[in-house]
Lab assay of single mutants.
Amino acid sequence: MQAFVKTLTGKTITLEVEPSDTIENVKAKIQDKEGIPPDQQRLIFAGKQLEDGRTLSDYNIQKESTLHLVLR
């Protein structure tokens, strides 16, 4: 499924993900596309910070959801 990641600069990245993907996995995909190390990434969805060990389905993130990427 497709999900979108919006950065603070307003850029939107499109990712191909599965509901079973972990947040860690998603961060690795963002690193592949953008070169941002996962340890600098914080992903926010519905106002919550997403934890590495959880999956997209844990957070009820469905296709075409938009996550927000904040860098630390």
Rank of each mutant, 00 (worst) to 15 (best):
K48Q: 14
Q2K: 14
V5A: 02
Q40M: 12
E18W: 13
L71V: 12
K29N: 03
E64M: 10
T22L: 11
D58W: 11
E64I: 05
L67N: 01
M1S: 04
I30R: 00
P19D: 06
E24R: 15
T12Y: 09
N25D: 12
H68C: 12
D58N: 05
L71H: 07
T9H: 13
G35D: 05
Q31M: 13
L43C: 01
L71E: 08
K48T: 13
V17E: 00
F4M: 07
E64N: 15
P37H: 12
I61H: 03
L67P: 03
D21P: 00
N60M: 09
G47M: 04
E34P: 01
I13H: 03
I44V: 09
T55D: 03
K11W: 08
K11T: 08
M1I: 11
I36Q: 02
T12C: 12
R54I: 05
Q2N: 10
K29W: 04
Q40R: 13
V26S: 00
G35E: 03
A28C: 09
K27A: 01
E24I: 11
L69R: 00
A3P: 01
T9P: 04
T9G: 13
K29V: 04
S20A: 09
I30C: 01
L67K: 01
V5C: 04
L15H: 00
E24F: 15
I23A: 03
L71Y: 08
L8Q: 14
T55W: 03
T55P: 05
Q40H: 13
T22Y: 08
S20H: 11
N60Y: 07
T14Q: 10
A46L: 12
M1P: 02
L69P: 00
G47F: 05
I61W: 06
R42C: 14
F45H: 09
D58P: 00
P38D: 04
T7R: 06
E24L: 15
T66S: 06
K48F: 11
G35W: 03
I44C: 12
A28I: 14
D32I: 13
I23L: 04
Y59T: 01
I61S: 03
Y59G: 01
D39A: 13
I44E: 10
G47H: 05
T9E: 13
V26K: 00
K48G: 06
K29A: 06
L56R: 00
K48N: 10
Q2R: 15
T66C: 08
K63Y: 08
E24Y: 15
F4G: 02
R72V: 15
Q2P: 10
V17Y: 04
F4S: 06
I36M: 05
E51D: 09
K11H: 12
I36A: 03
Y59C: 02
I13A: 02
G35I: 02
G53I: 07
M1T: 04
L15S: 00
S20L: 09
S20D: 11
T7V: 08
P37T: 06
E18V: 13
R54P: 04
D32E: 14
D39I: 10
R54Q: 09
L15E: 00
Q62I: 13
G53K: 12
L8G: 13
Q62P: 12
P19C: 06
P38Y: 11
P19Y: 09
Q49K: 09
P19S: 10
E64A: 08
I61G: 02
I36V: 08
D32F: 12
K33D: 03
R42D: 11
T55Y: 06
T66K: 06
S20F: 12
Q41S: 04
N25I: 14
V26E: 00
E24C: 08
Y59P: 01
Q31I: 02
T66I: 14
I44T: 08
I30E: 00
K11N: 07
S57W: 08
E18K: 14
M1H: 05
I36C: 04
S57L: 11
Q40A: 10
V26R: 00
S57C: 05
T9L: 10
G53F: 11
Q62E: 11
L67A: 02
T9I: 07
T12D: 04
R42H: 13
R72D: 12
R42T: 15
K48W: 07
K6A: 07
R72W: 12
Q2M: 13
T14N: 06
L69H: 00
Q49V: 15
E34C: 13
D21Q: 04
I13G: 00
Q2G: 05
I23F: 02
I30K: 00
N25M: 15
G10P: 02
E18D: 11
S20T: 13
T7F: 15
V26I: 12
S65E: 09
I30L: 07
L8P: 15
Q40V: 11
H68A: 06
A46C: 10
P38T: 14
T7P: 04
V17Q: 00
I61Y: 05
I23D: 00
D52W: 03
S57G: 11
P37M: 07
K11A: 08
K33G: 04
D21K: 01
K27Q: 02
L8R: 12
L71T: 10
R42E: 13
P37A: 09
A46R: 14
E24N: 08
V17S: 01
P37E: 07
I13T: 03
Y59N: 02
D58V: 03
Q40Y: 10
K27L: 04
E16K: 09
G10E: 03
I61T: 04
P37D: 07
L67H: 02
E18L: 15
K6M: 10
V17F: 05
Q2H: 12
T55Q: 07
V26Y: 00
Q2I: 15
R72S: 13
L8F: 13
I36S: 04
V5W: 02
T22V: 04
D52H: 06
I61V: 08
T12S: 06
E51A: 08
T7Q: 06
D32L: 13
V70C: 09
A46I: 06
D39H: 13
R72T: 14
S65T: 09
Q31A: 13
K11Y: 13
G53M: 09
V26D: 00
E18G: 07
D39Y: 13
Y59E: 03
P37I: 05
I61P: 03
T12N: 05
L50K: 00
K48P: 01
A28M: 14
D58K: 02
P19W: 08
K27E: 01
L71I: 13
E64F: 12
L67F: 09
N60H: 09
E24H: 12
D39C: 12
V70L: 13
K63E: 12
D21H: 05
T7D: 07
D52F: 04
T9F: 13
L69N: 00
K27S: 01
S65P: 07
A28G: 10
Q62G: 14
G53A: 10
P19G: 08
T9W: 15
Q49M: 14
F45N: 03
P19Q: 07
Q31C: 11
K11S: 08
V5N: 01
F4T: 08
N25E: 12
L69D: 01
I13D: 01
E64P: 04
K48D: 06
E24P: 02
L69Y: 01
Q62K: 12
I61D: 03
L43Y: 02
H68I: 15
Q40D: 10
F4I: 11
K29S: 04
T9Q: 13
T7E: 04
Q31S: 12
E34Y: 07
Q49E: 15
P19F: 09
I61Q: 03
P38R: 13
K33T: 08
L56H: 00
I44L: 11
S65K: 06
K6D: 05
L56Y: 02
E18N: 13
F4P: 02
E64R: 07
Q62C: 08
E24D: 07
S65D: 13
D21R: 01
E34T: 15
V17D: 00
Y59L: 05
I23C: 02
T9V: 08
P19I: 09
K63V: 08
Q2T: 15
V70H: 11
Q2C: 09
R72E: 13
L43M: 03
L15Q: 00
K48M: 14
L50Y: 01
R54V: 06
T12G: 03
G53N: 11
Q41M: 14
L15G: 00
G35P: 03
Y59Q: 03
L15T: 01
D39E: 14
F45G: 02
G53H: 15
A3H: 02
T55M: 10
T55R: 11
L67G: 01
P19V: 08
E24K: 13
R72I: 14
L50T: 03
D52N: 11
K6W: 06
Q49T: 15
E18Q: 13
D58T: 04
G35T: 03
L50Q: 01
T22D: 03
D58L: 03
L50H: 00
Q62W: 09
E18I: 11
L8E: 15
L69K: 00
N25G: 09
V17W: 03
A46H: 14
L69C: 02
L8D: 13
N25A: 14
T55N: 05
V26L: 10
L8A: 14
K29T: 03
P37F: 05
K27D: 00
S20C: 10
E34K: 05
V5L: 05
K6V: 14
D32T: 11
G47P: 01
I36H: 09
Y59K: 01
T55I: 07
A46D: 14
I23Q: 01
P19H: 07
L43V: 04
L69E: 01
T22M: 07
I23S: 02
A3N: 03
F4V: 09
R54W: 11
P19A: 10
E34Q: 07
T22K: 09
D32C: 08
Q49F: 14
V5P: 01
K29P: 00
S57P: 02
H68F: 14
F45R: 03
G35S: 06
T55E: 03
I30S: 00
K63N: 15
F45I: 04
A3Q: 05
F45K: 03
L56D: 01
Q41H: 04
K63D: 15
L15C: 02
Q2V: 15
P19R: 07
R42I: 15
S57Y: 09
E51F: 07
T55K: 11
S65N: 09
I61K: 03
E24Q: 13
K27M: 06
T7W: 11
P38G: 07
V70N: 06
D21F: 07
L8H: 14
Y59H: 03
I30V: 05
R72L: 14
H68K: 07
